[in-house]
Amino acid sequence: MENVTEIKLVKGEFTPDEAKEVLFSLVMSKIRFHQLEVFSNGERNIGDIDYSEKRITELENSKIVIDSKINEAISKMKRIRLNGTIEIEILE
C-alpha cells in the first residue's frame, strides 16, 4: 500500500532491565495519553471516554505480561530480542 509507512521503532537485543525500561516507557506513555484523554473529555463533557478507559486496562494488563516475560528472562539469565514496527497509514 502506498499510503502506509513502516517504521522500526524498536529493534535489537537487550538485557532484561533494558528491555523492561524500553517497553514500560512505551506502555506508560500510551497510558498517560489515554488518562489525559479521559480527564480532558470528562472535564469538558465531550466525547466517549469508554475507549480510552478500555485501552488503559488493556495496557495495564500488558505491563503484567511484560513483567512476567522479563522475570522469566532474568531467572534463566537470558537476553531479550525486541522487534516493534509501527505502521503509519494516511486514511481517506
Rank of each mutant, 00 (worst) to 15 (best):
L23T: 11
E87A: 02
L26H: 09
S62I: 11
L82V: 02
M1I: 06
S40K: 14
T5R: 11
S68N: 14
E53Y: 06
D48K: 09
L82G: 00
I74C: 02
V38L: 03
F14Y: 12
R79A: 10
E37N: 09
I90F: 11
I86H: 08
V65Q: 06
S40Y: 15
R81I: 08
V65E: 09
K78Y: 13
I7N: 03
K54D: 14
E92G: 13
S40H: 14
L26C: 09
G84S: 12
N41A: 02
L91Y: 06
N41V: 01
Y51M: 08
A19Q: 00
S29F: 11
I64L: 04
R32G: 06
I64A: 02
L59E: 12
R32I: 08
I86S: 06
F39Y: 13
K8S: 09
E37C: 02
I7W: 06
E87L: 01
L23V: 15
Q35I: 07
E92A: 12
S25L: 05
I74P: 02
H34V: 09
I49W: 08
I80T: 00
S62N: 12
V22I: 15
K63N: 14
K54Q: 14
T85C: 01
N3T: 09
T15L: 07
P16S: 00
G47W: 14
M28R: 13
E13T: 10
S25E: 09
N45Y: 13
I88V: 15
T57Y: 03
V10L: 03
L82Y: 02
M28G: 08
P16G: 00
D67F: 09
R81N: 05
V4A: 03
I88D: 08
I86T: 08
L59S: 13
K11N: 15
K11G: 09
T57P: 00
Y51P: 08
I56T: 04
I66G: 03
I88E: 11
T15P: 10
D17N: 07
E18C: 02
F24Y: 14
F14M: 05
M28S: 13
L23R: 09
I49P: 05
N45H: 14
T85N: 04
I56G: 01
D50C: 07
M28N: 15
K30N: 14
R79D: 11
K76I: 05
E13R: 10
L36N: 15
K54V: 12
F39T: 07
F14W: 03
N71A: 07
A73T: 03
G42L: 04
T85A: 00
S52G: 13
S25R: 04
I64F: 01
E37S: 05
T15H: 03
A73P: 02
E58L: 10
G84D: 11
V10M: 01
K54H: 13
V38H: 06
D50I: 04
I66D: 06
E53I: 08
L91D: 05
E6K: 00
I80Q: 01
T5L: 12
E58W: 07
E43L: 12
V22L: 06
R81E: 08
